[in-house]
Amino acid sequence: MSDEFDFWKEFKSNKKGMIGLIIVLFFAVIAIFAPIISPYNPNTTNPALFLSPPSRLHYFGTDTLGQDLFSRDIYGAQISLIVGISAGAVAIVIGLLAGLISGYLGGAVDEVIMRIVDFFIVIPALVFMIIIAALLGPSLINVIMVIGLLSWAPTARIIRSMVLSIREWPFVESAKANNAGKIYIMFRHIFPNVTSVLYGNAMLAISAAIFTQAALVFLGVGNVTSISWGGIIRDAYTSGALTAGDFSFILPPGIFIFVLIFGFIMMGFATEEIMNPRLRTIKG
């Protein structure tokens, strides 16, 4: 427990980490209070307001259906955070289990899991996701599962390498000598020692998932029916707003994606820095 207390203390004094945390909290507030913050119902159409420019009534203008873009950009935070965090969680849980099992059991199990990891690291994930998402059809769950199931490999690799060194530590040896079960040792003794790395990885996995979700929707294969930033960018392209030179359509959703991803990445890097001040590396 004292470890976690120290971690939070270090994190608080880490500039990158705090900037990241503030950004993420900011968007969380926006997502939760979207109905209160947004001036209009984001789905209310108004044919009279076809691509109207920014005004005091519509801060970011309206889209081709006359929907208020500011309200849609506010609501977009919900999908990005939901998909990002859920898909990140799926990836982290699978990666953690695979890494723990692979590293602790070793032998043939390890070999098989690591070859699967190699495979998933090498294959072009986005192409895979596009195709599966296109075949499965648009739904929130599909998008979360597709992103999560294709993003766990880097985490598994890092967790495994940590487990390999932790399992040689004396307290694990003594637990073995006391006839503790494998699963018990894995979760009671090894798991607590990899959590810190897991936090950093979770942040990076979430940021990647937010990007991927937006990219999939942009390509027209994600959960295209929900209001999302990727969808608004897609609308900006298809509506002709770009050709018309209208910045207010495309600029805000992109900046939001960018800042939110940046926030999670900063938190992830800060965690890694705290855990490993010498290395300060990112891999994968």
Partner: peptide, 22 residues
Amino acid sequence: SMAIYSIPTFWLGGIFILIAIK
């Protein structure tokens, strides 16, 4: 670099298109 790394590709391209058309 971290900021550039966080920019959505498909959005950056759109901004370039906007500027290039203008």
